[in-house]
Computed example of a mutant assay.
Amino acid sequence: MTVNVKDVAAAAGVSAGTVSNALNHPERVAPETVERVRRAIRDLGYVRNDAARQLRAGRSRSVGLIVLDMRNPFYADVARGADARAEQDGLSVLVSDSARDGERERRLVDLFAEQRASGVIATPLTGDLEHFERLAERGVPVVLVDHEGDSDGLSTVSVDDRKGGRLATEHLLARGCTRIAFVGGPSGLRQVRDRFEGARAAASAAGAALERVEIDDLTVRHGRAAGEALLRRPTGRRPDGIFAANDLVAVGLLQALTMTGGVRVPDDVALVGYDDIDFAASTVVPLTSVRQPAELLGATAIELLAQSPGEHVRFEPQVVVRATA
């Protein structure tokens, strides 16, 4: 038999309205009454119809989170930070992967709108934000993560990737590297483009050479393939410093350099990654990386959902020095 609010009210000796207040606005009800209602709920095994309540309210208690690539632990850390902060507000986070597919991104935005999400957080694929702007115009708060602010109707939280690229390259230059390669791609990704621009600015200021090695994806496999290609060059034409666009690429490069090429890292080639994901410190040679505060990005995005649209928060990156550079 299905237990309803009236059954709970009868067991607790209160009205159905008091049960509703005890569940949704306990501050309006005497503590001893709240406890009687909760005891009745436990005894009867009552489960409230949250879907119906959300329908009446016009919004669910869920936040949609759309990330670029679930394979990258950086986005898992963003989701962890968002989920921990959302829990404090009685919200849940539903995570989806756009897989760097623009059409899929749009479908996910539409899906969260249909589900009456209380807000949407996303790492957008491109600068085309029309579908996010339409969602915001319908009254759904939108926060873009890892994206610079360029829309008054959307809030953003990001890290200065140009500065991160500059810091990584300046670190390699300070180690005495004179032939530096940037390994990353696709170049259409804003994060890759900004990190390269920062690296190029640092190299240019120092009068140093910077080579761009384009890869198709930011994965360990593509990083390893790039490393193997660099090793096929004569020793004098190899870079003596490498800046990888993210840590997964850096791990693949490290595998190629140390496991198949007999190259000493950092003595022969210094290596810097980006993101400082958890296992960067646990690679065969602990990885020097540019840290992004991933969990803080996620937590801040949740907080921005409750604020006026058009807020922009930007964090500073930092180089975490370990054994590879």
Rank of each mutant, 00 (worst) to 15 (best):
E130T: 11
V3P: 04
V67S: 11
Q292M: 09
R200M: 11
G176M: 10
R195L: 02
R134F: 03
V319E: 01
A294I: 01
T126C: 03
V29I: 10
N4V: 08
V109F: 00
A202W: 08
A281H: 05
N24W: 06
A229G: 10
A323E: 15
L129E: 03
I180A: 06
K163L: 13
E228M: 12
G188T: 08
L230Y: 14
A12T: 09
L44M: 00
V3G: 06
D101C: 09
I41A: 05
E197N: 14
D146C: 13
G207E: 03
G261M: 04
I180F: 00
R322T: 02
R71S: 15
P309W: 03
R291E: 08
D69P: 01
V145R: 04
E105C: 03
R138N: 11
E214A: 12
R224H: 06
A84D: 14
V143F: 00
F132E: 02
S60F: 04
A202T: 06
D7K: 04
L287W: 08
A99H: 14
A306Q: 10
R190V: 09
I66L: 08
A10Q: 13
G207D: 05
A209R: 14
L91E: 03
S151R: 15
L172F: 00
G90L: 05
V34W: 05
N49Q: 03
V249I: 08
R106S: 11
T18P: 06
V265C: 02
N21C: 06
R224D: 08
Y75G: 03
Q292I: 09
L108D: 04
S155T: 06
T260S: 15
R314D: 07
A86Q: 07
S282T: 10
G164L: 00
S158M: 10
Y274I: 12
E32R: 11
V157S: 01
R106M: 11
F315M: 04
K6S: 11
V37R: 12
L230V: 03
E105A: 12
L172M: 10
D160F: 01
R212G: 02
S151V: 07
S96D: 10
R232D: 15
G236T: 05
